[in-house]
């Protein structure tokens, strides 16, 4: 069972941009691509902790603002030569409302 909670409207996020959601596992970055896809990942680069929500969004990827690591928003995997991954959080769109899988977040928090 998932517990989907509303975190806002897709229109709250600029295209090719991100917003932050504060949660028990820290800040979660919620992205909206040029194609209006939405993704959520931990807002913390595994390299030096950079806030990925502040990076430049291109395609379904984001470039970390601190040292230019690139992550897939779909898988959370670092791209190119860098190795590492961030956790992804499931989102669902109900009309314009973005829903986040809070149970998944709680499960991560409980780890």
């Amino acid at each position: 069972m998932s517990n989907w909670i509303a975190i806002g409207s897709i229109n709250d996020i600029p295209r090719r941009g991100a917003r932050c959601v504060k949660s028990p596992i820290g800040t979660i970055a919620v992205f909206r691509t040029a194609e209006d896809e939405i993704y959520a990942i931990e807002d913390r680069c595994p390299h030096k902790g950079g806030p990925l929500s502040q990076g430049i969004v291109h395609g379904a990827q984001v470039t970390c603002p601190l040292h230019n690591w690139v992550f897939s928003l779909e898988t959370g995997e670092a791209q190119g030569a860098d190795e590492g991954r961030v956790r992804t959080v499931a989102l669902r769109l109900d009309g314009e409302t973005i829903l986040m899988d809070a149970d998944l977040v709680m499960a991560i928090a409980a780890e």
């Binding site: 975190i7 806002g8 932050c20 959601v21 504060k22 949660s23 028990p24 709680m106």
Partner: peptide, 11 residues
């Protein structure tokens, strides 16, 4: 929108 969190939730 740049300067505020979109949402917040706790336990």
């Amino acid at each position: 929108h740049e300067f505020a969190a979109m949402a917040e939730f706790g336990f």
